[in-house]
Computed example of a mutant assay.
Amino acid sequence: MGLRKALNAYGNQSLETEVSVASPHRLILMLFDGAIKACNLARVNMQNGAIADKGRAISHAISIIHEGLRTALDKEQGGELAVNLDALYEYMGRQLLQANLHNDPKLIDEVQDLLAGLKESWEQIDPRQMVTQEQVPQQDRAVPLSYGRA
């Protein structure tokens, strides 16, 4: 699965077991957590003048956003929402690059706030409610279901 490969960008070996049994919904939450933590670390390193560590943390956050969250988007099924999220993830990456170049913690804070808002929205999604037509038993198909598909 592409998400599992992308979670390698998350970079923590102790997560291997959790990743191997996590649902796709949970994997996305883990990616958000990883990117938020990397932003926190980047900000702390920036404040402490640890330039190399700041750069590694920012690179890690960008990697999670680009190789994890962006890769997980299904632009065919997700339509306009997926396209908009893709653009937002691209924007976040650019902001983090600028934060690194200009030592600007406000840009890290901006990205962190965006990630936190998206994570909160993702947490509101109940994967059990994401039923597709193919998952509904034949006898229950009297009324077509349109929710659950982006």
Rank of each mutant, 00 (worst) to 15 (best):
R43V: 02
G34I: 03
N40H: 13
G34Y: 02
E76C: 05
Y10W: 13
L27I: 09
R26S: 04
T17W: 04
Q133M: 13
E80K: 13
A99V: 01
G68H: 08
E90R: 13
I108H: 03
P127N: 10
V19D: 07
N48V: 02
D86Y: 03
N40Y: 09
G34M: 06
G55T: 11
V131S: 02
N84E: 08
A42I: 10
D126M: 07
N103W: 04
L31I: 10
H25P: 04
A57P: 03
R128L: 12
E90F: 09
N100T: 00
Q135S: 15
N12M: 14
S59G: 15
E18L: 08
G148R: 02
T71D: 11
G68V: 01
E134L: 08
G68F: 08
M46K: 01
I65L: 02
I108P: 03
V111L: 11
M46V: 01
M30E: 03
D113A: 14
A150S: 12
L114N: 11
A116P: 00
Y147D: 03
A35W: 01
S121G: 15
L81V: 11
D33H: 12
Q139V: 12
L115W: 09
M46P: 03
S14W: 09
A61K: 04
N12F: 10
E76A: 10
E110A: 12
I62L: 00
D104N: 15
V111D: 07
A87I: 05
N48C: 11
L115F: 09
E67H: 07
S23I: 09
A38Y: 03
G34P: 05
P144T: 15
T17Q: 14
E16M: 13
T71I: 09
